[in-house]
Every structure is written in structure tokens, then in C-alpha cells.
Write a protein that binds this DNA or RNA. Sequence first.
DNA 1: GTACGTAGATTACTTTTGGTTACTTTTGAA
DNA 2: TTCAAAAGTAACCAAAAGTAATCTACGTAC
Lengths: 127, 127
Amino acid sequence: MQKIYNIGVEATLEVIGGKWKPVILCHLNHHGKIRTNEFRRLIPGISQKMLTSQLRELEQAGLINRKVFNQVPPKVEYSLTPYGQGMEPILNMLCTWGEKHVEFLQDKGEEVLLKQRDEDIAIQQTS
Amino acid sequence: MQKIYNIGVEATLEVIGGKWKPVILCHLNHHGKIRTNEFRRLIPGISQKMLTSQLRELEQAGLINRKVFNQVPPKVEYSLTPYGQGMEPILNMLCTWGEKHVEFLQDKGEEVLLKQRDEDIAIQQTS
DNA sequence: GTACGTAGATTACTTTTGGTTACTTTTGAA
DNA sequence: TTCAAAAGTAACCAAAAGTAATCTACGTAC
């Protein structure tokens, strides 16, 4: 049974469509390696279930890597695969467009805030 | 009540998130002006309701223009606003990434097809 | 005066997505 | 002996997204 796309972007959306995937990918693009709990701090709104399911799907699509360290307590690290790195230009533009858009909304008088606290949170435990 | 984004891409997704919006925008980026029924041919899978609701939301966000010609039968033409044109680099990359991805899947032996019949359909009625 | 074409609204219905809560696993520390 | 930490899973439920079918409006062509 054949899958048919009418335009390239439809195939792209099949991979990164969904509420959280672009967010996850942008953080990975930004930080390199990220552990599960770091994701939860970087993306406060996401539930445990969504986080793992989205990570699994991105892994299946070949965009991200899941590296399990055999230790207790467990440690799992996610990162972009080389194939996923092919998305970097897109991820960067999605982020910067959003930043500009927030400024645009603020200029219009809307009450919007961009936290971008990445730097603060980033690498706290280098375990 | 303030809206808070943790990273730029979240703001971007608020505007172009959803199954159809990037597809609509890509077609507009590609063709310039598109009428309602042209959209239905370009995006066979979309329902009437989704098409108009997504177009309305994109219009509200200031990305697209809705031009009504006062004639019978009705004619409505959609196009990117200057603000929406700021998305063009992103839209182009989303399309070309998808095209490459389809090739990648085909090389892996998956049964995937990219129609990209845009040229065929495009401007049939110049009314 | 009947049917056509275009754009869209409405309603009722189904499917998909996402959230909540509770439970699991393993080992070292209190 | 019981707990804590990290990364999950599983079962259930609510909400959102999406679909199909029908209805409106109107001027033109037949």
C-alpha cells in the first residue's frame, strides 16, 4: 500500500509534524546532548507520556539517537543523528522566525513573553 | 493574561502549527495567488471545513491575504502578505527537505510517491 | 424556471491526540 | 528495611481535530 505525497512539505510534516517534535529538535540542535529530565525542564508543558512517545517516533524516523548508559540511577542521552543534522538550517530558522514574531507581537501591544532561559538551565549536571 | 514561550520555535508553531497550514503556505509560496477550488485540487485530502478554517487562521495571523472579487460565481483569491513572505525561506526548505526525504525512503525500499503535480494543475483557468 | 458553479456555513459524527494517575525497575544510601 | 532517583509503561479518560453530508446565496446560461 503506497503512501502518496502531493508536495514535499507533506513528507516533512509526516516526520516533524506534531505539537512537540520541532520543539524537541530545536532544543537538541541548540544543546547537542540532552537527558530526559533536562527535556522536562526545557519543555515544562510536556507530559511524560508525550515526551517519550515523541522521542521514540523521532528515533524511529532516524532523526535522533537514544544512548542508554548502563548505570543506576539510569541515564539516557538524546542527540541528533547525522540525518537529523540535515534539519539544522530549518530548525534555526524556525527558532529565529519565532523570536522575531514575538517581538512583532510585543510591538503590537500583545502580552507575550519569550523566556529563552536555555543558557540558565542548560548544563547543570555534567555527571 | 500573558502568553509565555520557552523557545522561539514555540511561537512559530502557534502560527503555522497544524496539519495543513504549512502545506497551504507552501502552495502559496509556489504559485502566488490561489483560489479556493484550486486549493482543493492541490490538497485533495483536505475537507471543506479544514480548508476554510485554516485559511481564516492564517489570515488572522497576518500571513495571508484574502481578496474577494465581487462577482458571480464568487471568486476569492489567497496570497501571502509581505509578512507571510518572511516565511519563504522556511517554506522552501520544508519542501526540499521533504523531497530529499522521499528519495531517501525510496532508496530504503519503501513504497512512497511524491506527485508534485503542481505544474500540471497550476493555472488552468486564468479567468 | 431549472440547473450550474463558486465559496462558504452548519451539524453531527468519528478519530486522533494528549493528559492523569498509578505502577515498574535497579541499586546504593539512610 | 525502606527509600530515593531516573526513565520509563500501562490503563483510562477528556478534549481537540478532522470528516462527511447537507444547506445557503446568487447571477448566468439554457
